[in-house]
Amino acid sequence: MKFTAVIVIAPDDLEDKVIDRAQRAGATGVTILPGKGIGGEARKTFFGLTFEGTQSVLLMVVGQHLTAPILKELHQVLVKGTESRGLAFAIPIEHLTGIEMSQVVRFEEHLRRTET
């Protein structure tokens, strides 16, 4: 089975929605890291202090067949019209170790359900 890493960078207030949508599309586990970033626009300041919103970086290892459905679900959360509130992308994984076999079984069961 081939795997993909799905990486999502989103504001903290969208974290639960991102996780819910990813799991609905077949993701099983999510690693959450705190983050902060600077977008393309100028940073906001308040009395000379720079305001940077906090973000979550969510990492998921999923079966390759789940990548497109997960990204499609995440698009619904992250993009509203022309406004983007986050970023999601996928990277193919060449080599992998340490994944629990129960996750592989769940990936395969999800694949069988979606094929029928």
Score class of each variant (00 low, 15 high):
residue 80 K to P: 02
residue 112 R to D: 06
residue 62 V to T: 05
residue 98 G to W: 02
residue 67 T to F: 01
residue 41 E to Y: 10
residue 51 F to T: 04
residue 86 G to N: 08
residue 78 L to I: 02
residue 112 R to M: 07
residue 91 I to D: 08
residue 86 G to H: 04
residue 109 E to S: 11
residue 17 K to W: 04
residue 11 P to C: 02
residue 57 V to P: 00
residue 104 V to E: 07
residue 11 P to D: 08
residue 28 T to V: 13
residue 84 S to N: 10
residue 93 I to E: 09
residue 84 S to Y: 07
residue 9 I to N: 12
residue 39 G to M: 02
residue 113 R to E: 15
residue 87 L to A: 08
residue 54 T to L: 07
residue 103 Q to A: 09
residue 54 T to M: 06
residue 74 L to E: 04
residue 47 F to T: 11
residue 19 I to W: 02
residue 40 G to Q: 13
residue 59 L to N: 02
residue 27 A to E: 04
residue 79 V to H: 10
residue 11 P to W: 00
residue 72 K to C: 05
residue 77 V to W: 01
residue 80 K to M: 04
residue 6 V to A: 04
residue 75 H to C: 06
residue 39 G to I: 01
residue 10 A to W: 07
residue 35 G to V: 00
residue 14 L to V: 09
residue 46 F to D: 13
residue 38 I to C: 05
residue 55 Q to H: 14
residue 47 F to S: 14
residue 15 E to Q: 14
residue 113 R to D: 13
residue 9 I to V: 15
residue 41 E to S: 12
residue 108 E to S: 08
residue 9 I to E: 06
residue 67 T to K: 12
residue 86 G to R: 07
residue 25 A to C: 03
residue 101 M to Q: 10
residue 105 V to H: 06
residue 26 G to Q: 01
residue 96 L to F: 09
residue 35 G to E: 01
residue 113 R to Q: 15
residue 82 T to C: 00
residue 82 T to H: 11
residue 13 D to L: 04
residue 36 K to D: 02
residue 5 A to G: 05
residue 27 A to M: 02
residue 63 G to N: 07
residue 79 V to Q: 11
residue 107 F to Q: 05
residue 39 G to N: 07
residue 77 V to P: 00
residue 28 T to E: 09
residue 55 Q to K: 15
residue 64 Q to H: 10
residue 43 R to M: 15
residue 104 V to A: 05
residue 74 L to S: 03
residue 19 I to E: 06
residue 72 K to T: 14
residue 38 I to G: 00
residue 112 R to E: 14
residue 74 L to F: 05
residue 41 E to F: 03
residue 33 L to E: 04
residue 92 P to I: 01
residue 36 K to W: 08
residue 92 P to R: 13
residue 76 Q to M: 11
residue 8 V to Q: 09
residue 36 K to F: 03
residue 1 M to Q: 13
residue 12 D to R: 12
residue 56 S to E: 04
residue 26 G to F: 02
residue 53 G to L: 03
residue 73 E to M: 05
residue 29 G to T: 10
residue 72 K to P: 02
residue 95 H to K: 15
residue 94 E to V: 10
residue 71 L to I: 06
residue 84 S to G: 12
residue 60 M to C: 00
residue 111 L to D: 13
residue 111 L to Q: 14
residue 62 V to R: 06
residue 44 K to Q: 14
residue 99 I to M: 13
residue 4 T to E: 15
residue 115 E to S: 15
residue 94 E to A: 12
residue 53 G to F: 00
residue 44 K to A: 07
residue 95 H to W: 08
residue 69 P to T: 02
residue 8 V to S: 09
residue 11 P to V: 03
residue 22 A to K: 06
residue 35 G to Q: 08
residue 65 H to M: 01
residue 12 D to A: 09
residue 65 H to E: 13
residue 87 L to V: 15
residue 33 L to S: 11
residue 104 V to C: 05
residue 24 R to E: 13
residue 26 G to N: 01
residue 31 T to S: 09
residue 84 S to F: 09
residue 57 V to A: 03
residue 6 V to D: 06
residue 71 L to Y: 09
residue 34 P to N: 07
residue 74 L to V: 01
residue 86 G to P: 05
residue 105 V to A: 11
residue 110 H to M: 07
residue 58 L to H: 07
residue 67 T to A: 05
residue 13 D to S: 11
residue 116 T to I: 12
residue 48 G to E: 10
residue 11 P to S: 10
residue 66 L to C: 00
residue 74 L to M: 01
residue 63 G to A: 07
residue 98 G to Y: 04
